[in-house]
Every structure is written in structure tokens, then in C-alpha cells.
């Protein structure tokens, strides 16, 4: 799922300090799971902002809401009769949700309340790590189920760069070398012969390199 972390409070305060009516909008999706933007975070941020404004001697209305998913029109529409009452909103959804909220309520200023980081896993509570970069054409079948695009610092497609040290990446010794992981995995699977067959040069046009992407699923559309 998408992983995000709460933005520093001072940054949010700086963004919203001149407004009078604010909505803090959470998302019950990915950001709830990674504890950056669910209803709890909404309540904490709203309380913090109310405290800030009161001590600064300003009367500001700060309201709370959380939507099932901010990346869906239907859920965003649930705010339609309230949105006019606010000058600005802070979205605690990921960048996708924040933008969609802004798109839907074109005339309102929407600030992001979280920093959206990557697609990854919860290794344990409070510890997340990246797994996929959404390249648009998955090559996991060729790399022992471990993604070199997301997990190799240099996105090497055919074996390690030569810099790995004791299983750690030369760019960042805190992360394992993806190619070492791939090698170990293929060995476990008895598929080391995969290394004999190079991964074809990748068509990066399906990745971000081809510009913003769109999926059109004719099979789902009528």
C-alpha cells in the first residue's frame, strides 16, 4: 500500500495560518493503515491547530472529517454540502487523494498534510519499506520475485553493480543489496540459471519516463 508520514506541524501551521475556516480531511484508506492520515491523525492535527490559533488570539474554525477514500469522486462528494463553508482544507490522504480533493473542489485551497513516500510494506508497526515503483510492466517473474527497480539503488536490471559490500548496498549500507537478495532467492528456488538469460532492455515508457500514465480498461467500460 501507499506509505506516507505526517508532515511537520510547523509546515502545516505556516500554510494555514491566514485562513479562518479550515477542514482537516482524513482518508480511511492507505494512510490509516500507515497511521499518517486516519481519523485519529485528523483529530490530533485539528486539536493542535485549534490550540495554535487560540493561543495566537485568533478565532478560527477547524473542523474534522474522514472519507472512505479520497481517491474516489463518490466519497469526495460526501463533502459537497460542507465544502463551501471552508476557506481551505488540509488533506491527510496521500498525494493522490489530496489532488483529487482539490480537483473536485476546484475553488478551494487544499494543502497536503502528509508526505507521501512510496509503495511498500509494514515490516512491523512504525517500520515501512519500499517494494514497488509502479513501472508499468512487472518483471518480478524474471528476478526471483524481488524488484530491482524499487529495491536496487541504481535500478540495475542484470546483476549487481559491483559495489555491494557484505550484502549491503554501496549507496546506503542500511538497505540490503537487491541483487544479492535476488541471487539468494534464485539459489533457494534452484533457478540460478536465470542469470544465463539477460533481462531484456526495459521499455521505460510504461514507467514515469513516458510521462503521466493512464490505464484504459476497455473490458471494464461499456
Amino acid at each position: 500500500m501507499i506509505k506516507a508520514k505526517p508532515k511537520p506541524l510547523e509546515e502545516i501551521i505556516d500554510n494555514v495560518k491566514d485562513f479562518n475556516k479550515l477542514l482537516i480531511a482524513g482518508c480511511d484508506g492507505c494512510v490509516t493503515v500507515c497511521e499518517a492520515g486516519g481519523l485519529k491523525e485528523v483529530k490530533i492535527l485539528a486539536a493542535a491547530l485549534r490550540l495554535y490559533f487560540t493561543q495566537a488570539g485568533k478565532q478560527v474554525q477547524v473542523d474534522e472529517a474522514s472519507l472512505t477514500r479520497q481517491c474516489e469522486k463518490e466519497y469526495l462528494a460526501q463533502l459537497s454540502d460542507r465544502m463551501d463553508g471552508y476557506d481551505a482544507a488540509v488533506s491527510l490522504a496521500c498525494g493522490v487523494g489530496a489532488q483529487y480533493l482539490a480537483e473536485m473542489y476546484n475553488h478551494k485551497i487544499v494543502f497536503p498534510g502528509v508526505d507521501t513516500c512510496f509503495m511498500g510494506v509494514n515490516e512491523e508497526r512504525g517500520l515501512y519499506s519500499e517494494r514497488c515503483q509502479a513501472c508499468g510492466r512487472c518483471i518480478l517473474a524474471e528476478t526471483g520475485g524481488i524488484c530491482p527497480i524499487a529495491r536496487c539503488s541504481k535500478r540495475m536490471l542484470n546483476g549487481p553493480c559491483g559495489g555491494s559490500d557484505k550484502g549491503k548496498c554501496e549507496i546506503n549500507p542500511d538497505i540490503p543489496c537487491a541483487w544479492e537478495l535476488i541471487y539468494e532467492r534464485l539459489k533457494t528456488l534452484g533457478q540460478l540459471d536465470r542469470f544465463e538469460r539477460p533481462v531484456e532492455p526495459k521499455d521505460w515508457s510504461t514507467s514515469r519516463d513516458g510521462g503521466p500514465r493512464k490505464i484504459v480498461r476497455e473490458d471494464l467500460r461499456i
Partner: peptide, 12 residues
């Protein structure tokens, strides 16, 4: 701990 940080940042 987090409440402390917040109170610091909001000026209380």
C-alpha cells in the same frame, strides 16, 4: 512525548 512536541510547536 508527542503531546509535548505538539504543545511546543503550537506555542503552549
Amino acid at each position: 512525548k508527542r503531546a509535548k512536541e505538539i504543545l511546543d510547536k503550537v506555542g503552549l
